[in-house]
């Protein structure tokens, strides 16, 4: 068996063992996102998930994928690493939860701001998050529109659980950023 085919089997086995229901690695264009979401809608209605959970999961995934496409620094990555290294999205289901994981490269100087944002939403309860959502909605100027602000609050609100994250330095200036949200089924 060729090395590549046995590796593919291993990757499949690895994902299967971790109950991955959907995964994607590649450029997350709006078209790709739409197609992933379409599949997700079909999967969820088949998996007997309640309507509110379906809507929340859908919303979390949209925000996670939007975040990647907004912050993805494809050209910089290729320059620094000498090859393309696209983002990854994974959805798994186990122990009564859906896990939504995304990973992508970011400039390391964004880490501090991101940690602050995530830690802040993790420190708030539902009421606090709603208040923060309202404040952000009211103050955000049109120029800030594409910055992740509301998105992360929305993910936290819909998830109802703390967000997990990790940064792994790749080069001096670039890190790989993984964020995980989970939602009870």
């Amino acid at each position: 068996m060729a090395k590549e085919t046995s590796e593919a089997l291993e990757i499949h086995q690895f994902m299967n063992d971790r109950n991955v229901v959907m995964s994607f690695m590649g450029e997350l264009t709006h078209q790709v996102t739409t197609s992933l979401l379409k599949n997700l809608k079909m999967d969820m209605s088949m998996a007997n998930v309640g309507v509110l959970t379906q809507k929340r999961l859908y919303g979390i995934i949209v925000e996670c994928l939007d975040n990647i496409s907004k912050h993805w620094i494809a050209n910089d990555i290729e320059k620094v690493m000498g090859r393309a290294s696209p983002p990854i999205f994974m959805l798994s289901r186990s122990n009564g939860f859906y896990y939504i994981i995304t990973g992508n490269h970011i400039p390391s100087d964004q880490i501090e701001t991101l940690i602050k944002k995530i830690e802040l939403v993790n420190s708030l309860d539902k009421k606090g998050l709603q208040e923060f959502y309202r404040q952000t909605l009211a103050k955000e100027s049109p120029l800030d529109r594409d910055n992740a602000g509301l998105g992360i609050i929305d993910i936290a609100l819909k998830s109802g659980n703390k967000l997990e994250y990790e940064f792994r330095p790749v080069t001096e200036n670039i890190s790989f950023y993984v964020i995980q949200a989970r939602i009870q089924i």
Binding site: K55, Y58, G59, V62, E63, D66, L137, A138, E140, R145, D146, G149, L150, G151, I153, D154
Partner: peptide, 12 residues
């Protein structure tokens, strides 16, 4: 049925 957070700002 659904709106994302970027739309929320414009709906506002």
């Amino acid at each position: 049925d659904y709106f994302n957070s970027t739309s929320a700002k414009f709906i506002m």
